[in-house]
């Protein structure tokens, strides 16, 4: 009962904070994208455009909620809700400080990977239920992409697990606090593993350069073609949440989570998460979209062998080398 109460309270706080962060992140992204293209970004709503996300949400909620003819009404309505739920769910095991964690599972890494992998299901459901050929194509692409990139994602995640000798996310952070951040030492394992993880995360959350499920130039808006109003807002929110939670997980697994000098753990965790989050958008506004075949080639010919190599090297480092949990 005590654990349940703890989970509920911390969960509520973390969800609220995450949603607020998403609102600010949308503003931040638009500002950043503007400056990267020598523009100003939003300036008119509120001071330096800070109230722009609120205006955006108000605008989106006013829009007509359209369900296309021949759509599967139940699935069509369920998909955006599931997208947000799965994106938020992964945040449950992310330690924001040594104490603020909603549920400190022993198999936290497994849980994150499982919930993160589930996010493709609402995407495909949306594509299927829309009764629209573009949406269905987008859904199919999302499945292909997510299934493929799940492999390097898991392989890269196994590197910190093996090195720290635990599957608990807070355990991995604690190990890094006691030894080194994984990108610092052993950097020849941590850095490439982070690189693979980061690319796989971009692909899993359908961000540029891997946004082929919604490729505007080919598929109108991919799976979200038929969505409008509140449902579209939920999809939008889910997308940002997925990236944000993914950044938090990457910060915990590779950058020592809440570990850092001078400031409380929470500050470090948030700072690291935001740096990773911003770099996701930095990539987004710098690169072009991959073709489907290039996407598959990168996954199966480059990242997966690299991941397998890293996994073996990590195992060897722990068993034969100087590093490891012992």
């Amino acid at each position: 009962m005590n654990a349940l109460l703890h989970g509920a309270v911390y969960g509520a706080v973390i969800v609220t904070v995450l949603l607020t962060m998403v609102a600010l992140a949308i503003w931040g992204e638009r500002k950043l994208a503007g400056r990267m293209q020598s523009r100003l970004g939003p300036t008119l709503v509120g001071p330096v455009g800070l109230l722009q996300p609120i205006a955006d949400v108000l605008k989106l909620l006013q829009k007509e909620d359209i369900v296309p003819l021949g759509a599967d009404r139940w699935l069509f309505g369920a998909a955006p809700v599931l997208a947000v739920l799965f994106s938020l769910g992964a945040a449950a095991v992310v330690p924001f400080s040594p104490t603020s964690i909603a549920a400190d599972l022993d198999v936290g890494v497994l849980y994150v990977l499982a919930i993160g992998g589930l996010t493709v299901i609402p995407t495909f459901v949306a594509g299927w239920a829309s009764n629209n050929k573009f949406a269905l194509l987008g859904g199919m692409r999302a499945i292909a992409q997510s299934v493929s990139y799940g492999v390097p994602l898991v392989l890269a995640t196994m590197v910190p697990v093996i090195l720290a000798g635990t599957m608990s996310v807070s355990g991995i952070v604690g190990w890094q606090a006691a030894h080194h951040w994984l990108v610092v030492w052993p950097f020849f394992l941590g850095l490439p593993a982070f690189f693979v993880f980061f690319l796989a995360l971009l692909a899993e959350s359908n961000r540029i350069p891997f946004d082929i499920p919604e490729a505007e130039s080919e598929l109108v808006a991919g799976v979200t073609t038929e969505y409008s109003g509140a449902k579209f807002t939920l999809f939008y929110l889910g997308e940002y949440l997925h990236t944000l939670v993914g950044s938090a997980v990457a910060a915990a697994l590779f950058f020592g989570g809440w570990d850092g000098p001078f400031a409380p753990g929470l500050h470090w965790m948030v700072a690291k998460t935001l740096v990773l989050f911003v770099s996701v958008y930095w990539v987004r506004w710098s690169l072009l979209r991959f073709r489907s075949d290039q996407l598959m080639e990168l996954c199966w010919k480059r990242l997966t062998p690299l991941g397998v190599g890293l996994l073996l090297a990590a195992a060897a480092w722990v068993e034969l080398g100087p590093g490891g949990a012992r």
Partner: peptide
């Protein structure tokens, strides 16, 4: 993009 982001818009 990084260089542009720090230039005057």
């Amino acid at each position: 993009t990084l260089v542009t982001a720090f230039r005057k818009p």
